[in-house]
Nucleic acid binder design. Sequence first.
DNA 1: CAGCTAAATCATAATCATTACTATTTAGTT
DNA 2: AACTAAATAGTAATGATTATGATTTAGCTG
Lengths: 151, 151
Amino acid sequence: MDTTIEQAVGILRRNQLKITKQRQALIDYLVTYKDHYVAISEVDEHMRTLFPGMSHNTIYRNVKEFETLGLLELKAQANQTLVKYQCDFKHQHHHHFICSNCGKVQELDACPLDAFEAQLPGCTITGHRIEFYGLCADCTAKLGASKSLSK
Amino acid sequence: MDTTIEQAVGILRRNQLKITKQRQALIDYLVTYKDHYVAISEVDEHMRTLFPGMSHNTIYRNVKEFETLGLLELKAQANQTLVKYQCDFKHQHHHHFICSNCGKVQELDACPLDAFEAQLPGCTITGHRIEFYGLCADCTAKLGASKSLSK
DNA sequence: CAGCTAAATCATAATCATTACTATTTAGTT
DNA sequence: AACTAAATAGTAATGATTATGATTTAGCTG
Ligand SMILES: [Mn+2]
Ligand SMILES: [Mn+2]
Ligand SMILES: [Zn+2]
Ligand SMILES: [Zn+2]
């Protein structure tokens, strides 16, 4: 039974990508944020403290490459791309609840795709994104349910 | 019975915003794209052909202001913000199907919020986003259902 | 209609995330 | 140990968005 990191390295290997110390460190770092989105600029900043002078290009390129391998999930935000380690490499279909306060991501199951398909006769549905936002149980307990937060 | 544009102008008026020719033109332009997302850079470009030398600042500021008024919907994309005229000013809750080929947006009803709420005990759900992507009926007919498109 | 004033716009430049490019280094192989 | 394609470094460009201070104008008042 491989660790999460060994799984990731295995994926790189299977795709004939070289295992560089920069990529190792990138994976290590992202795994520690496994269930949170991180701004890519923070990733950039972190990598450049580990490897002073590391090229922005390298960081951004690897993040994108890792996404196409299914290692990471990217999420466009205003003026920022967010990065999250992929919850499951088997790509089991699921959706997310994201805490607006602590950033924690929880997985949800059940997918209402079928219900919506019926409303789109003649269309070809190639994908969908379903996300819920709010306060996780911990943050609800701490902050109360009365906070007004971004949708 | 007001036209769509008169409704929009009424909203500006009710919020004590001045009706400038720039804002008029911005509304006019966006109404013609009523059911499509447009890249804000295209909006910028268009406005600056109508008003040569118009300040980027003015365009971006107004777009954002219009969003807070519920006139527009914004959508973060990698390196670009997309803009769409709000389908309905009454803010009836609904979700979207977006054609990856022609960009047309169709509204969907039914909302699976309840089903997911049950999976989040103790959490406070403040919002959600549900979007489907693919080919609309027209594009499916034209292009066939065999295209592989971005999720 | 002329005058007033806060709001809006202009004009210009700065910021900041992301990307481009080319020289150099290195992982993985033989 | 040598080889080579792939990866990285180093440097600068690009392009969307925002900042700032001067100028103009919409809407109001008399
Ligand atoms: Mn997940
Ligand atoms: Mn709509
Ligand atoms: Zn689904
Ligand atoms: Zn809903």
